[in-house]
Design a protein around this nucleic acid. Structure first.
Length: 631
RNA sequence: GCCGGCGUAGCUCAGUGGUAGAGCAAGUGAUUCGUAAUCACUAGGUCGAGGGUUCAAAUCCCCCCGCCGGCUCCA
């Protein structure tokens, strides 16, 4: 007689099933799109059987976890294809990523685009063979022996760190060390694409063997893959480097030096708008604007610890035997301002804000358009406060970030980074500082991730990752607690007890670097800035030469009313002028023909293509003003 | 910095050992036109820099610079 077990299925349904029933059989009834199951909380393959009373739920390929499993399995299929085509390849790791998967290989020569095509073809074959993923639980020794036979030295190295029992996965002739779970068989991969090849190192360490990483992605349906590829295409169109040139915002020139941004009139206009906005918002929140020098004596950088900890990223210069460091951060001058007077506990907090331009020697391979440059301007502030004010100050900064990001339509996530190896200060200060950040996040009830050992050399930090219109994440704002710098500079305030006390310092940026933020904004809006940010808000265009004198007057009036306006009075057809303004993503095109001259009006056409009814200059100015955010 | 790819006109790109090309942009002229491209003509390049191979190099080789995709790092 069959032995029965009691299982709890999804939605709390209870069932009695024969002991030894395959999860796949249950999945066939419950969720045909399942790729794995969750049994009493643990993820397992559908090839597993049910041996006792358990709670079962299914992981659909359409869920986040299911997609990850699909992609992880696709990386195995890719590795199989590579091994079949190039038997001498050594395998390393092949995980899923946010958008797909990769696998790192050690091979005697580099993979060419032709190789990638072959690999793709072979993968398609393997998928059509529909080979099952077979799990095998073995003692470590057995696994080591198998991989020794296969000369998979990286697998052996990895095995040495694993517990006594490990799992292997086999599909066809391909065997890999893996925790799983995996999809039932290769045929479940309905759509995939290999994307690019790049170099990497074994375990991410530059001292190790150079490996080749092949990136790919996989989806449960062809349509989902198409959408993803379309999104990549969309992202390519929004690339701020491309739009920066097309919209004539900025350039990076080899002659000027890599990573040095040159703002053209429109880019400089955009930056000016952002800076004006920032100054206003800071003044509203009790910050004081300060300005420090770009060069400070070397001794001061030694005192701050920058020379010791940050020297390889700094530029130095020597004039008449006096050595200077070009600032990579803005904090020094702010501390000198603090020290310029005796401070009372009543004066705190002091909030010094500076649009501070800094230079950092970033490694050449790390430069990237406006997103990673060598000279940039931070919307930097240093808050000096009493320890009891710390929580309130951090909360206020988080609110500031929230207010500002809302205006630009960004969502964001928080990450807390703790003490790195190379750092200054006392352990208990680091603990207090980290706790202060944690408390503030809890006070504001914000979820956050923790990055161990990723803090700045002087203190722990909260990083804010923006999510743009395409859900890409960018690091901009950061909040850092610092007990070390006040100590090093012997900053004090007189407490109510008449004694000297040590203030705490907060370093923080909201937009981060103007360069990076502008880059992110360009991509976020795809160059079509909202009216309040658009370097050019409107362009007046004539239908024929007859309207030029009137149009000139319209142009002059708009300019005087503060509208950022351009003119296009060329002897061209209206359609041509519209097209050019459209490509420039100018929010309003103002058409002036004989009709408008007669009525004393202008006819706006929106960037969206919508044509508005003709209106007086005054009404158009009101229209523009109505599109500014309420600040 | 490391691995790989790339560098030709302002931009996008063709040209793989034998006299540097196209489209767009620019300039000139014609056209005076109502919501995404009017027509014609003209001009524009030490083929990233330097060195080498060759009768001959944009093309092959070496080295340097820069850019791109990643790694690592970060505002």
């Amino acid at each position: 007689m069959e032995e029965l077990v009691h299982v709890t299925m999804p939605k709390g349904v209870k069932r009695k099933i024969p002991k030894g029933t395959k999860l796949q059989e249950l999945a066939d009834q419950w969720d045909k799109e399942a790729v794995a199951a969750q049994v009493d909380g643990g993820l397992v393959d559908l090839s597993r059987t049910v041996e006792k009373d358990v709670a079962i739920s299914f992981i659909s390929v359409h869920s986040k976890k299911g997609l990850e499993i699909l992609r992880h399995s696709a990386s195995h299929v890719m590795a199989q294809a590579v091994k079949e085509l190039f038997p001498n390849v050594k395998l390393t790791f092949g995980p899923y990523t946010e958008n797909g998967f990769y696998y790192d290989f050690d091979y005697e020569r580099t993979f060419t685009p032709q190789d990638i095509e072959l690999i793709e073809k072979r993968m398609t074959e393997i998928i059509s063979r529909d080979e099952p993923f077979i799990r095998e639980d073995v003692p470590k020794e057995v696994a080591i022996k198998k991989f020794q036979e296969m000369r998979e030295s990286y697998k052996i190295e990895h095995l040495e760190e694993l517990p006594e029992h490990v799992s292997l996965y086999r599909q066809g002739t391909f065997l890999d060390l893996c925790e799983g779970p995996h999809i039932p068989s290769t045929g479940r991969i309905k759509a995939f694409r290999l994307l690019n090849v790049s170099g990497t190192y074994w375990r991410g360490d530059a001292r190790n063997q150079v490996l080749q990483r092949i990136y790919g992605t996989a989806f449960p349906t062809e349509q989902a893959l198409e959408e993803f590829l379309h999104m990549l295409e969309e992202a390519r169109k929004r690339d701020h480097r491309k739009l920066g040139r097309e919209l004539d915002l900025f350039s990076l020139s080899e002659e000027a030096g890599p990573g040095m941004v040159i703002y053209h009139p429109k880019g400089a206009m955009l930056r000016t708008i952002l800076e004006d906005f920032e100054k206003k918002e800071h003044l509203k929140r009790g910050y004081q604007i300060v300005i420090g020098p770009h060069l400070l004596r070397l001794e001061l950088w030694k005192q701050s610890g920058h020379f010791e900890n940050y020297r390889d990223k700094m530029y130095f210069t020597k004039v008449e035997d006096a050595e200077y460091g070009i600032k990579p951060m803005n904090c020094l001058a702010h501390m000198l301002i603090y020290k310029s007077q005796i401070r009372s506990y009543r004066d705190l907090p002091l909030r010094y804000f500076e649009l501070g331009t800094v230079y950092r020697h970033e490694k050449s391979g790390e430069l990237h358009g406006l997103l990673r440059v060598r000279g940039f301007t931070q919307d930097d502030a240093h808050i000096l406060c009493r320890p009891d004010q710390l929580n309130e100050e951090i909360c206020a900064i988080i609110e500031f970030v929230d207010d500002v990001m809302r205006i630009f339509g960004f969502e964001f996530e928080m990450e807390l980074s703790t003490r790195p190896e190379k750092s200054i200060g006392q352990d208990e200060d680091w603990e207090r500082a980290t706790q202060a950040l944690r408390n503030a996040l809890q006070t504001k009830n914000l979820p956050y991730d923790v990055n161990e050992g990723e803090g700045a050399f002087y203190g722990p930090k909260i990083d804010v990752k923006l999510k743009d219109a395409l859900h890409r994440r960018w690091q901009c704002a950061t909040i850092q607690v610092d007990f070390a710098m006040p100590e090093r500079f012997d900053l004090t305030y007189v407490g109510s007890d008449g004694e000297k006390h040590r203030p705490v310092m907060l370093h923080r940026v909201i937009l981060g670097a103007m360069e990076r933020f502008i880059g992110v904004l360009v991509e976020h809006y795809a160059g079509a800035f909202p009216v309040w940010l658009a370097p050019t808000q409107a362009r007046v265009m004539t239908v024929t030469d007859r309207q030029v004198p009137y149009a000139e007057e319209v142009y002059r009036q708009l300019m005087q009313r503060g509208v950022r306006v351009e003119k296009d009075f060329r002897n061209e057809k209206l359609g041509f002028k519209i097209r050019e303004a459209q490509i420039q993503k100018i929010p309003y095109m103002l058409v002036v023909g004989d009709r408008e001259v007669k009525e004393g009006t202008l006819s706006p056409r929106k960037r969206s293509g919508e044509t508005m009814k003709s209106m007086k200059v005054e009404d158009f100015v009101k229209q523009v003003e109505s599109e500014y955010p309420a600040l």
